[in-house]
Design a protein around this nucleic acid. Structure first.
Length: 399
RNA sequence: ACGGGCGUAGCUCAAUGGUAGAGCUCCAGGUUGUGGUCCUGGUUGUUGCCGGUUCAAAUCCGGUCGCUCGUC
């Protein structure tokens, strides 16, 4: 049985329609994964996430191993524990090492609470919960994700903070590759159920290193290939250039996953470069901060109505130029005080069907948690709806 | 009626003779493999009104208007 099927390749771009099979359901690509770092999409129930037609969610090894700990989850698995019976991808913890260590250093925090040390064997952390020392090796990261019951397991990797010099970037990339080999070996030896393992391409913004990383990983038989270490502050043009050279190297009959991306226009542009999977905190985090996304044209219309070409040139758009396609509402703005229409009257989400902008604004001004819920529901409906339009766009040969 | 207190940004209030400020609101940005109500900027004033003292007044003095508390 093939686990990954290419349904259709676009004639206009590198975009692909795909089907990824897991024991918790099949996933149509390109797709977006809402983020449930600690085993919950913040403010929503898994049933709500399902009713928004989310096909898969992402959870995090690092956070779950600290709290509640694998002892609790191993008895029933993460799916039952959180009552989500769809597929789950778990991140390995590599990014947290970057996020808690490297990135904090760059942000010049003089007292670094979280110290992170890399060595050939793995990553040393100090728990943010109780300060206890924790060691995460490539094998351990796989073992924990196997115990969680994750459908897609990510290898442990090393992500560098940009800008980063060639030598240091090369070292991190080569370490990631060595860990990838160790991970694959450990995974095959201990595999007991239907779980997939994905490798991660690193190499910063250096094309040579990215090429090397992609070639080396392609030799290892992973179930899918992720591209990490992008959208961490480099110019958007740079990110697209890296993809232009990396994606063609990756096996065509495997998933291509761009980690941590992104804005709606970035998703469209990278789908056109052959990416099948995304995850990003933008729709959920921004919802909590009162930043709400909406299509600026009738979202029930066919993809022809969308201007998918708006980023074709590298002249990167401001939000105003994007207004053809989507717009951003800052719901606390006073202009919404008396605005009794829904966020988007063409949106079929629970929020838009029942609540007005004025009420949403009121909830945010008074810090009522219902506001976070309703905004999260809508922003996820927007992102998941965007992916539906993209799939339809590929099917109808307009993307 | 008499006595006390108070009038400063849209709101709540600082500044006691020496460049009129803060918080909230408001406005504009930001957030990319989540460190869970965030971060960065910005606009706003005849200091109730009239006069006086002073090099200099939100501040001191006189008057006046408004609000408020107390007593009869």
């Amino acid at each position: 049985m093939t686990q990954f099927q290419l349904i259709k390749k676009s004639k206009k771009s590198q975009a692909r329609l795909s089907l990824l099979k897991t024991s918790h359901g099949n996933i149509e690509g390109p797709f977006f994964m809402p983020i449930a770092t600690r085993g919950a999409i913040k403010n929503l129930t898994p049933e709500e996430v399902k009713s928004l037609r989310s096909q898969i969610i992402l959870s995090n090894t690092y956070h779950l191993m600290l709290r509640p700990g694998i002892k609790v989850i191993e008895k029933i698995g993460l799916h039952k524990f959180m009552n989500w019976n769809g597929p789950i991808l778990t991140d390995s913890g590599g990014f947290q090492a970057y996020s808690l260590g490297e990135r904090q250093k760059q942000k010049n925090s003089e007292t670094l609470k979280q110290k992170v040390k890399f060595s050939e064997k793995g990553i040393e952390f100090y728990s943010e919960v109780d300060g206890k020392k924790i060691f995460l090796s490539p094998e351990k990261a796989i073992e924990i994700q196997m115990i969680l019951g994750s459908d897609i397991i990510m290898v442990l990797d090393q992500c560098v903070a940009l800008p980063c010099d060639y030598k240091k970037t090369k070292q991190a990339m080569e370490l990631t590759t060595r860990w990838a080999n160790i991970s694959r070996e450990y995974f095959l030896k201990n595999k007991t159920k239907d779980q997939k393992l994905f490798g991660i391409v690193q190499g910063g913004t250096y094309k040579r290193l990215r090429l090397q990383s992609a070639k080396d990983l392609a030799k290892i038989d992973f179930d899918g290939y992720a591209i990490g270490g992008l959208a961490v502050g480099e110019p958007r043009k740079k990110m697209l250039e890296v993809l232009d050279c990396v994606v063609p190297i990756l096996p065509e009959n495997k998933s291509h996953y761009l980690m941590g991306v992104g804005k709606p226009e970035e998703i469209i542009e990278t789908v056109k470069r052959g990416i099948d999977m995304f995850d990003c905190v933008i729709p959920t985090r921004n919802a909590r901060h009162g930043t709400i996304y909406k299509f600026s044209i009738d979202s029930t219309k066919s993809p022809q109505a969308f201007n998918f070409q708006f980023l074709n040139k590298f002249n990167l758009p401001t939000n105003k130029q994007n207004s053809k396609f989507y717009e951003i509402l800052r719901i606390t703005n006073s202009k919404f005080e008396y605005d009794l229409q829904p966020i988007d009257s063409n949106c079929d989400c629970y929020t838009c069907q029942n609540y007005s902008r004025a009420y949403l604004r009121h909830l945010f001004m008074t810090n009522e948690s219902l506001g976070f819920r309703l905004a999260t529901i809508h922003n996820l409906a927007f992102y998941l709806g965007l992916m539906e339009k993209i799939r339809k766009g590929i099917l109808e040969e307009i993307l």
